[in-house]
Design a protein around this nucleic acid. Structure first.
Lengths: 344, 344
DNA sequence: CGAAGCATTGCACACGTGTGCACAGGCCAC
DNA sequence: GTGGCCTGTGCACACGTGTGCAATGCTTCG
């Protein structure tokens, strides 16, 4: 059912005021109205004011659908993510959406939580809106569809995804350095028997951190127990501590995510283990909750603000240079709190 | 700078495939292509298959900008919120975006965090995209602009806002019942000197809960101390406990938000107060962290899933019935944990 | 005073799609 | 055999906007 053809009524009840309406009211051509709202266009001061007054009075707003349709320069950015309510992801989304807005873009959000058959249909859907770019913070898009995005002039930015499989710009946390800091700190605390606790879901950062930690410890000649089950949640950490720790002799634990680490801390305490006297625990991300007095988790900080800036910077790069494959490494930093034995 | 006029090249390098391209390749008219992708349109099986094959091969995707431009039936929903990284808000956004997607809509997200001069310019910007509706989860939009949305056929749904000031549908948590549960529970625990702790930002739910609690306690003849400073964060709760509790004799506290309550708990413990033996503490929202072993906060649950359903239901109501002012009350529920003395 | 330059404005086309209308062709019933 | 009905298809218009091109009027310089 389409909009009924403009009736003879002077003011159509439904639908928005168009530039033609404003032009008629201001006694100018429609072009003049369009130029009034186009920065840098040539309009006399007098006409501009007349148009602006009429537009204000009538409640005129440029129709960006029509505008984008013709100008081919969209300010829409598709963002796909899952676990939007997890502390780290929600923080990332918060900062990203702010940065996008500050740079004059809009954020078309797609939640991948229900995407049982991958993010591909989501990306298809995003492309229908002719976005300028797609930011993927979750899921593993097949490289075929990424290539198709790029072919159509849609930038693709992968956040913490494997960069070697597909094209597109990549923004990744410096896991090598970060996990190195973790390994150093736990060794300095004198830990002899280590564990790495992560989720069973093989997201790129999960497996990467686990492998980096294992190899660093192997190099130092330390034994490492691996626990990977469930999802990346507080409950997983809780269960890990309960079923892994009692009588194990483990005295140093790296949780691949702060959220897991906090659950692990509570689980360890419930088992009667003293942190950090008997077990040292480290996390990764530095979510807000890690600073809470009940936890004071020693962890690795990666800054969502930096991530947002990096994404916007990647967006700003001229797309005419062809499908770039630039990778930006985000700095990380050790945050000392109270869950690792002092290295004295 | 507009797209260069279609050159003589058989395959334009930039930009998307159009329905006309597909029609040419499949040897049919452009109408046939359009009808193939329009559910319920009349196309023969043979043509449909030929079109679909060509479309798949060429990577054709309907341009929803052009489609929305003409059909006037947008599936885009503007969502404005702030504090997107707070546990409760991020959970709400998570559920809302999922529910919107499940109902075939898309979510255009606007972060109001940087909006120093109100959400009005944000709403202006949203309207330029000719969204079907706007969901406002934050900020206090002037009723003038809400009326203008409605006049243009854009539904407006206010989440936990004051419904009496402006038109538009409203979805609110049942604060009256919820705060009633809080008051009952604290009285049943035998608390004699109460405090209500909230942020200094006068959001509707903040002031509402504070007032309801104060009047309920006044009715029961109990003294109530009010503390409202800072924002609705963990740190506010922490500071409140430190500067309010020592030597005050307060034995029952209602924090208007779980996040504040968790900070308050840590602050109270830091002051050497035993919870719930010396102080009973209750929150509101039931965020995930409240169930963590370090806190086990007794609180009021309001379900973000219910909220999302209510918003989608409001969206589904026919807009032809004129600007409705329907209000849906979300049920709340007492969650008993360990921060309130047993009522025995 | 005339010519040239410049600012301003309107016309007309383009963007990509949905769909009413007319028309063609096949099928069925009388 | 012929008229009526139904299905399928193409033409053409509409949606609201940006902008190149030409025309107009004004200013300035020689």
């Amino acid at each position: 059912m389409t909009k009924p053809h403009r009736t003879g009524l002077p003011k159509p009840q439904r639908g928005f005021i168009t530039a033609a309406d404003v032009a008629r009211a201001a006694g100018v051509s429609r072009s003049a109205v369009s130029r009034t709202f186009t920065p840098g266009a040539s309009v006399s001061q007098e006409v501009r004011e007349r148009v602006q007054d009429a537009a204000r009075a009538m409640g005129y707003r440029v129709n960006r659908l029509a505008s984008n349709l013709i100008s081919d320069e969209s300010t829409l950015v598709g963002v796909v993510g899952s676990n939007l309510s997890s502390p780290f992801m929600s923080r990332q989304l918060d900062e990203l959406s702010r940065a996008l807005q500050r740079s004059g873009r809009q954020c078309l959000l797609f939640n991948a939580a229900d995407a049982r058959d991958g993010v591909e249909p989501l990306i298809e859907s995003i492309l229908e809106f002719r976005v300028a770019a797609i930011v993927i913070m979750s899921g593993a898009p097949p490289s075929a569809i990424i290539d198709e995005c790029l072919k159509n002039g849609v930038r693709v930015i992968l956040v913490n995804r494997q960069p070697d499989e597909a094209a597109g710009d990549t923004v990744v946390s410096d896991d090598i350095h970060g996990v190195g800091l973790v390994a150093d700190r736990l060794l300095r605390a004198g830990c002899r028997k280590l564990a790495v606790v992560g989720s069973g879901v093989p997201t790129p950062s999960q497996v990467r951190r686990r492998q980096l930690f294992a190899s660093a410890m192997a190099k130092a000649g330390r034994e490492v127990v691996t626990w990977s089950q469930g999802t990346s949640t507080y409950d997983s950490g809780l269960e890990a501590a309960r079923s892994l720790m009692p009588g194990s002799g483990i005295d140093g634990v790296f949780c691949t995510t702060d959220l897991i680490a906090l659950g692990f801390l509570d689980g360890a305490r419930a088992c009667g283990l003293a942190v950090p006297e008997q077990v040292s625990v480290m996390g990764y991300d530095d979510i807000a909750q890690s600073a809470w007095l009940a936890y004071r988790l020693t962890t690795i900080r990666q800054s969502p603000v930096d991530l947002a800036s990096a994404v916007v910077a990647a967006l700003a790069r001229s797309p005419d240079d062809g499908p770039s494959r630039a990778q930006s490494l985000l700095p990380v930093e050790l945050v000392e709190r109270d869950t690792v034995r002092s290295g004295a």
